[in-house]
Design a binder for these strands. Structure first.
Length: 104
DNA sequence: TTAATGACCTATC
DNA sequence: CGATAGGCCATTA
């Protein structure tokens, strides 16, 4: 079924390793830039956490939301660091270098 | 069917 | 520069 969630999941799964994407970027790549709310909701339900790396999805500041119920916020940082993503002293991801361009 | 909520973003004061 | 309000879409009650 080609629902909005499916496209969102597709984009999230398309995020290459060692890169991060913002909700707005995903929404834009999914088809509509106003799905930022839906993206958050889609990742909230997260039916396939093993296929959908929600830890690679960050907000506009490069930080993850407080409701990260995947295993803890440390888990997100740990996974991203394991992929080679650097973190700023503020606890945010260096979007300037690790933000996904939308191109594989 | 209407109303309310949400892992957001942008604009305005 | 910091905080507040509004808006968009889909899902749930």
């Amino acid at each position: 079924m080609a629902s909005t969630f499916e496209m969102i999941y597709q984009v999230v799964k398309k995020i290459p390793s060692g890169k991060v994407a913002t909700y707005g970027q995903i929404a834009l790549l999914a088809g509509n830039p106003r799905w930022v709310r839906v993206v958050g909701y889609a990742l909230h339900v997260n039916p396939n956490p093993n296929e959908i790396p929600c830890f690679r999805v960050v907000n506009r500041e490069g930080k993850l939301s407080s409701a990260f119920a995947f295993g803890g916020e440390n888990q997100q940082r740990f996974l991203l660091e394991a992929e080679g993503v650097e973190f700023l002293p503020d606890g945010r991801v260096d979007l300037q270098r690790y933000l996904w361009n939308g191109i594989d």
